[in-house]
Design a binder for these strands. Sequence first.
DNA 1: CGACATTCGTGTAACGATACACACGCTCGC
DNA 2: GCGAGCGTGTGTATCGTTACACGAATGTCG
Lengths: 349, 349
Amino acid sequence: MTPPAGVRRPTLSQVAARAGVSVMTASYTYSQPGRVSAEARSRVLAAAAELGYPGPDPRARSLRRGSTHTLGVILGEHLSYAFEDPQAASFLAGIADVCADRAYGMTILPITGAADDGQRIRAATVDGFILWTTSDDDPALTTVASLGRPAVVHGGPVVDGLGLVTIDNEAAAYAVGRITFSGARRPLVMSFPLDRARVSSVVTGPDTAYVRFPVTRDRLTGFQRAAEEHGRPWRDVVVAVCAHNAADEAERITARLLARADPPDAIAAMSDELAAGVVRAIRTTHGKVPDDVAVSGWDDAAIAADLGLTTVAQSLRDQGAQCARAVLGLEPSPAPAPWTVVVRESTRR
Amino acid sequence: MTPPAGVRRPTLSQVAARAGVSVMTASYTYSQPGRVSAEARSRVLAAAAELGYPGPDPRARSLRRGSTHTLGVILGEHLSYAFEDPQAASFLAGIADVCADRAYGMTILPITGAADDGQRIRAATVDGFILWTTSDDDPALTTVASLGRPAVVHGGPVVDGLGLVTIDNEAAAYAVGRITFSGARRPLVMSFPLDRARVSSVVTGPDTAYVRFPVTRDRLTGFQRAAEEHGRPWRDVVVAVCAHNAADEAERITARLLARADPPDAIAAMSDELAAGVVRAIRTTHGKVPDDVAVSGWDDAAIAADLGLTTVAQSLRDQGAQCARAVLGLEPSPAPAPWTVVVRESTRR
DNA sequence: CGACATTCGTGTAACGATACACACGCTCGC
DNA sequence: GCGAGCGTGTGTATCGTTACACGAATGTCG
């Protein structure tokens, strides 16, 4: 995989010399072919072919032109998890659609959560940024904001100078929570992490003000309203926190909770992935959905239809595309993204 | 998301001027801090802070240094599918691991299958390439080879000057095929596309020499050997081709095949994803796995364990990482990647 | 005390391309 | 017949940084 050493990429001026024209004529042949006569153009292209000139060096071009034709994507969690998280994958697919359309590259930035992330962001050769899964206190936010390049945050928080693409998570959580918790005596929320520490834990009625991830905070707030409306005080509501958006983890935690003296009888999960784990755990212990435990998910992924899950339908793919368009300046002021609640068997008692 | 217009990024020479040192001293402050005295260094950093200088411009740096600190990934199928294909996601995760480690960016190139893909590849500001899901006649291969930058192909084909990371697909297919087809009278292969047209179809005993995707070709060849060893001539073996690696499609096709007068009684699928669709279709029609139909998958994904699928275990994640290391020159000569067959209930009669 | 190594600052010349302005020859239109 | 306008070719300056080589100052050692 190592290229033959010693062969250097020919330059535009070598091509120009060989074609017997000026460097600018050669340059225009690539950037504005119409600007050059047919004869000159063909001589340049012939010379380029003879020399094996692959076209203008993108590095030099991006320096001179000031644009890299590439978008940077900053994924909040360690990259390892990002690709295996189906939500993130849909979101990335949406970005990729727009990028492919406009011939933009899409760079996944090598963020690890370590101290040098700021440097890595500053060193990225990209025209703009899209941020996924950021917390209020994520240092990447201030770094990106300080660069003065266009940037859009998905989900939140609101940062001055950065765009925002999101749904109204609180309203959606309230809507699906009301359905899930209806008639429940021990409602439970299967949640994403509350802060960047990303540890799994089980707490009751957490103060949402301390939750650092805006998406998670808004959803918890909505679920809280729904629970309280059904006469379940928040301080009695159990919130199970999964460190990652993975069904396995939700299954393990749910199994433990079901074994308690006061097992939950309604579980609202923050993703279909987590809900799938919940359902698996319930079935393993010979429980019935929804008779013993009502369950809802979020996203309306393929698995939600398979399992008959009530869920919040949103298109992360569209939201990814919206982010990309916003960064590229194709979408003046992104509107709140649409969502609906899809009611299926998993909440019908 | 649009940055305040008019503010220009300060340059290194402005910082140097403000700090009262030469440009080179300022430059060394960032690239080789040890090379400058503590006093000069702190003056430069102070000046940079006052001016809001975010560090050396990566575009200029990559032009001058000749390296971009970024790897390019070329995904054979249209990007839309790539992210939703769990195999691709694992592979990408492996690349991402290595990139994050070395502070390399990872650019997904905006390949669409259209005519200007070559230009897009040549215009990519990357140090090397990793190619995923390429066919023998993929024009991206020759384009990449002509650039003389390090590149690695996953799965094949073998191209002069490009590295190769793969398992021995033929041997693995033979191994899992022998188990799956044991005692079967109507073996069937659920396959990936045979060529870049990517249409789904159902054929019998295709001439493997005409299959354009090396991975698919090698696996078919292995399955062929396995079927023939069990006394099933290849011309009688049905090969169902799925256009994409998606369970839904496999389910639809399997349902149709099961409704035939001569339904298959053993199905070897080229991925667990496809096998999951196969199992779903069998169960929908009240068939039993493995009693009515033996099934095997490929990859040993999470779903394979869930479904009790016999499968070829390989780590696409490790292979992705291997590709990345090879391109970065950290791995002299990549060895064939390991695989094993995991036998579970789905083939035990 | 002179020879020699080390530390650290600087000037100059690239890296490879493009923006811009200018020059030249032609064709029109009046 | 002459200025305007267009189509084409070219020189120069510059994008922002770093490699390299050189020189001055300081330190070390016999």
